[in-house]
Amino acid sequence: MQAEIQDKSEALVAKDLWKQYPMGDVTVDALRGVNLRLPAGRFVILVGPSGSGKTTLLNLAGGLDTPSRGNLAVFGRALSGMNEEQLTAYRREKVGFVFQMFNLVPTLTALENIRLVAQLVGTDDLAPQTLADVGLADRADNLPSQLSGGEQQRVAIARALVKQPDILLADEPTGALDFETGRQVLSVLWQQTRSRGMTVIMVTHNVVLARMADLVIRLRSGEVIGMEPGEAVPPSEIAP
């Protein structure tokens, strides 16, 4: 088992992964024995209806939550059984997050939001360039409240990229944006992660967007019901 999950060419390995939530008197199975092997350096999209377990899987992969049973490893690091300190170190060193609501620190400017994380991992000198990479060099001194939704999400992407993480996790990153803005944001995400050879796991409701993926995983009722190669179409070429 250890040998299996230590293969560094695999970004994520899940073995019989379960996640259960108590809801009142009943227990809800958010994930039901998921088995997955995701190759490194790919743009993976998780699709499925609400309640299918996409976000739960993403949260487990990001160390935001812990599985109820089963095993999960990301780049050879077994997450199951990690304590809080180990999970914090994992999130700091290996994972970049992009949230649906951007989650920028409202009192820090765009550049400061990126530097906040860059200083945490020792890549402070990369912060201005990373902001420029997402096309916002001229908005460095703006507070989040002075940026549009699309711009805020691009700052959030830069914040995730500046850590140079092994894996970038994006939960509905365009969920709060209109299609056109969302497409622009995804273009930035697609280009930047590709140019860095970064593994991305993105959750979306929008099946159309699945065309940009290298690999599409379909979930329903907490189970993986399909895994198929994507078209790897740049988002700029995807029509609504």
């Binding site: 990001g62 935001l64 809080e84 300190e85 914090t88 170190a89 999130r91 700091r92 060193e93 994972v95 997050f97 949230f99 989650n103 620190v105 906040l116 994380v117 945490l120 991992v121 914040r159 850590k163």
Partner: peptide, 9 residues
């Protein structure tokens, strides 16, 4: 979010 980004509790 700060904790998700890797800041300790």
């Amino acid at each position: 979010t700060l904790r998700s980004l890797g800041f300790s509790a």
